[in-house]
């Protein structure tokens, strides 16, 4: 599992590659720390190379959203495959995020 954060067109983009399972979650949480100071930027969670997510990963996404919302930043999810989308539908996360 690899997470890379870059700034693109004023947005903070976190690109996920691999399996975001319970084993990978602690390290991914560390790698997402730069998103904490997102004031003035929208966040894009790029899931085009994300193969799998479990509740430990969903928890990290929710933490990003809960932090960003009061700062006025939008959190968009992009590139999700159908299987990931099913997980977001099952958990109601589909209604919490904006999608690109």
């Amino acid at each position: 599992m690899k997470t890379t954060i870059t700034e693109q067109d004023g947005n903070l983009v976190a690109k996920f590659e691999g399996r975001l399972d319970t084993a990978a979650a602690p390290q991914t949480e560390q790698e997402l720390q730069p998103l904490k100071n997102c004031q003035g930027h929208n966040i894009i969670l790029d899931c085009s190379e994300l193969a799998y997510i479990s509740s430990s990963g969903l928890r990290l996404f929710l933490t990003v959203l809960k932090n960003a919302k009061p700062l006025g930043s939008h959190v968009y999810i992009s590139g999700m495959n159908q299987e990931l989308r099913n997980v977001f539908t099952m958990t109601g996360f589909i209604n919490l995020f904006e999608f690109k």
């Binding site: 509740s55 928890r59 929710l62 919302k69 997980v87 109601g92 919490l96």
Partner: peptide, 24 residues
Amino acid sequence: DADVTLSAEERPIGGLGIYLVRQI
């Protein structure tokens, strides 16, 4: 079961695990 209809603000951070097992 977790309440999956809550908003981001109301959502607790945990509690999804067994809910997902039941769904699948």
